[in-house]
Amino acid sequence: MCIALPGKLIEVDELGFFGTVDFQGNKVDVTLGAVDAKVGDYVLIHAGNAIEVVTLEEAEDVMALLAELEGAYAEDEAGGENGENGQVFPLFRGGEDA
């Protein structure tokens, strides 16, 4: 479903419908109608179509996201205060908030 790659938008036609994206030296014609992008933006391209404008970090900062997660669980565990890392959590707890 999902092969897509981010590239730099280097050209947009007058109607804003077609553009050219540069993927490390590969220039591909793409359609832009599903996003609001301007020259210089990085766009995620799937099957020749832009599906999203992306912020290009070298790597998604997943470690920061996990730290956030651990922080939230540590707080829960300690009843509101920041718990210590290194706790073994019980496998299941009651309560669910989606």
């Binding site: 490390q24 030296g25 591909v28």
Partner: peptide, 12 residues
């Protein structure tokens, strides 16, 4: 090469 790798990423 970087450009070959990018083409591969693009086309699967």
């Amino acid at each position: 090469d970087e450009d070959v790798a990018a083409l591969c990423g693009l086309l699967g």
